[in-house]
Structures are given as C-alpha cells and as structure tokens.
Amino acid sequence: MLNEILQTIPQVVIDGLTLGAVYAVIALGYTMVYGILELINFAHGEIFMSGAFIGTAILIVLTGMGWVSAVPAIVMLITVLVLTAVLTGLLGMGIERVAYRPLRNAPRLIPLITAIGISFLLQDIVRFIAELQKGNYIVTGPNLFKDQISIKASSISAIFNDASIKTSFVIVLVTAVIMMIGLDIFVNRTKWGMAMRAVAQDRETASLMTVNVNKVISITFFIGSALGGATGVLFAVQYGTIDPYIGFILGLKAFTAAVLGGIGNIRGAMLGGLLLGLLEMFASANLTLLSGGVFGAEYKDVFAFAILIIVLLFKPEGLLGKPVTEKV
C-alpha cells in the first residue's frame, strides 16, 4: 500500500501545489479583510467567481475580435489578468464603501449577514448577465494553453510514477506565487503596507498618526479583491468551464485555509492554502486506498472541512497565528 501511495506522490504534489496556490491567494483576501476589520467577508468567494466571469468575458470578446490568435497566449493572459484584477478590485472597494462602511460600528454579526447577502446578490447578477448573453449560465471560455508537460519523476527514483501537468497548471502556480510574493513585499516593505498593519492593530491610534483609515481600508479591499479576481481568471483558464456557484465551495475552502494558517496572518494564509491543497489532493488520490474502499475520492471536501473543525477545536489561532500578549 505504501508503494502505491508513494507512486502517486509526484502527481499529488504538483496538483496539490496548484490547487493550494489558488486557495492561498483567495485566502489572502479573507485574511487581509479580517485582519483589518475583524469581518469575515463571505462575499470574497463571489469576487473570485466574478473575476472568473469577467476574465472569460474579456477573453471571449477579444477572441471575437481575432486578437487571441494574433498575440502570444502569455501576453493575452497578462492583459486579461490585469484588467480583471482592476475591475474586481474596484468591485470589492465599492462593496466595502456601500455595504460595509455604514455598518462599521454595528455589532459584528450584522456586517457578516450583509456579506452573505452580497454573495447571493453577486451570484444572481452574474447568472442573470450570463443567461442574457449566452442563454446559459454555465460558460466555457476559449482555451489559452493546451500543452502538457510530462515530468519524469521515475528517473529520480523508481518508486515514483511520472507526473503530467497541463501548461496552464504551471501558469497558475507561477502567477499565484508572484502574487503572493508581491503582496508580502507590499505589506512588509512599503509605507502603505505599514499603514495597513498599523490600522489592523489599532485603528483609532493609526488615525492619530495622520493615517486616513478609510483609505487604508479601501486599499485593503482593492488588493484583496484584485487578487481574488485574478485567481478567478486563473481558475477559468485552468478548468475552462465556470458557473456562478464556483465561488461558494472554493471560498469556503479558502476560508478554511485562512483559518488553518491563522486568520489575520498573511503568511499564514499562504501556508494554510498550500497545505490544504496538498492535503486535499493527497486525500483525493489515496482515500479509497487508505480506507479500504469505504471512502472514495469524492470525500476530499469532507476531509478539507474536517480539518477546519479540528483546527478550530485544537488550535483556533491557526498554525502561524500567535495569541499576542500585549502590555498596556
């Protein structure tokens, strides 16, 4: 049995890292907003979904204009990613301005319910537009990357099987990693990143330091949503077919990743995402084998949410979240 598990490891690692990178970038959006407002922005999964649709729409339009075949796929992808990121960033910023800011001082449950409301609203708006345009809310976008790369893991050691990856997997992984590194640099090395951390720790005092707190919060929503939207594009590129409900489960998984890493902790979200992706892929490849056929691969979601429950029970502050002792 061990041999069989080992054989699949290379494929599990590659698939797991790719899926994990997607979780990680979305988890960043949850964790940044939580860190700054202590709000779980349940609409974030729908921002991701909107990004997938906006990106696909742009691709379809550009294909219609004959641009997609004219320029290299990678240039196309970058264009679509940037456009979508800006649009979803503005969408997120707008949602904060309209729906969350008026509730800033309300009890915490109220903006949480609002967030769930926004999520339904986005699902239905996207479905409505997709039905109007395409006559179907399940949309398949043009395929940008068709190639496969094969990794000869068997040449490293005979116990491994060879793994194959679609080119789009590599693109997803690389883009996601670039986004994470970019965000990490922004938060830890720039002035506005510092302001963001200050606002997360003590909003009132930050405002006494000439920091415009509302602007920092808007920037936080912009960045989180831009990353989420761009990840939506990656998702669409990777899987081809999207519908307005993809944000729900993926959003919950990313939220699980954020909790696993320690909600509010940016590096925690990245670690949590990658771990969750790996664990889920491992479960999906080996659950049947490990449970002697009782549980199939379809139980991988149960597995992911079981992790959420276990983390909340035994280490609610997450892997990287430390309960900070503050001196007064």
């Binding site: 720790q201 330091m209 000439t210 001196k327």
Partner: peptide, 17 residues
Amino acid sequence: RIFPKLTVKENLLIGAF
C-alpha cells in the same frame, strides 16, 4: 497605544506617515 506588532522603528515611521 503603541502598535505592538510593529517594530520600534516602524512605530516611529508611522508617526511621520
């Protein structure tokens, strides 16, 4: 009301934001 998780230097820098 020091920012506990910012370094001393960052605490000073934020004053000159």
